[in-house]
Simulated assay, not measured.
Amino acid sequence: MTKVSESVRSEADEYRQGATRPLGGYAVAMTAFGALVGAAGVVAAWRGTGGRRISPYELLLMTAGTHKLARLVSKDAITSPLRMPFTRYRESGGPAEVMEDVREHGQLRHAVGELVSCPFCLSVWVATGFSVGFLFAPRFTRIAASALTAIAGSDYLQLIYASLQQAAEKNE
């Protein structure tokens, strides 16, 4: 066992090339993700819900809802208390958003910090959650995804309005 540990440690050190990369934390996060998805698959097979398909309409809701929920959790100022154990505030970002740095101490804390502060990274988990939701609780999931889709649409309309307003002010 020691030889295997030494080999893994050596490969990890070679991969890192001196950089701080929380490979152990990534492994824990991947294991948790795989276990959750595997458990959902087993329960779906046991309950006979494995053959349910997501409609194109639900996929559209899930796409926009995933975008909005991942962005809300990872960037919104109001959700910063959720990220606080894993990140540090750096500065304001876009409208109602903040930029944060990932905490460096602890491989799992660092890995979770990267996950919860990156909308692209978090969207994998959110989309998986929506997929499981459509499988086991489609009515509730459709309502939640619809609300998030409406919020995302509203956000884009707000940004378009602000851009048009700024353009009009420049022309005056």
Rank of each mutant, 00 (worst) to 15 (best):
K3V: 07
S5W: 13
S10G: 07
E11K: 15
D13V: 05
P22W: 02
P22K: 01
G24C: 05
Y26P: 03
V28A: 00
A29S: 09
M30D: 05
T31Y: 09
A32H: 07
G34N: 07
G38T: 02
A39P: 01
A40N: 03
V43G: 02
A44P: 10
T49W: 15
Y57R: 15
L60Y: 14
L60R: 12
L61A: 00
L61W: 00
L61E: 00
M62R: 08
H67F: 10
A70T: 05
R71D: 04
V73W: 15
S74P: 06
S74Q: 04
I78L: 12
G93A: 02
G93Q: 08
G93V: 09
E97I: 05
E97S: 04
M99Q: 13
E100K: 01
D101T: 14
V102D: 00
E104Y: 09
L108A: 05
V112C: 02
V116L: 09
V116M: 08
C118D: 15
F120W: 13
V124I: 10
V124G: 02
T128N: 09
G129C: 05
S131T: 11
P138A: 01
R139A: 10
R139S: 07
R139D: 06
R142F: 03
A144M: 12
S146V: 03
A147F: 11
A147S: 07
L148W: 02
L148G: 00
A150V: 15
I151S: 09
Q158T: 09
L159H: 14
Y161P: 11
S163C: 04
Q165H: 12
Q165R: 15
Q166I: 10
N171W: 15
E172P: 03
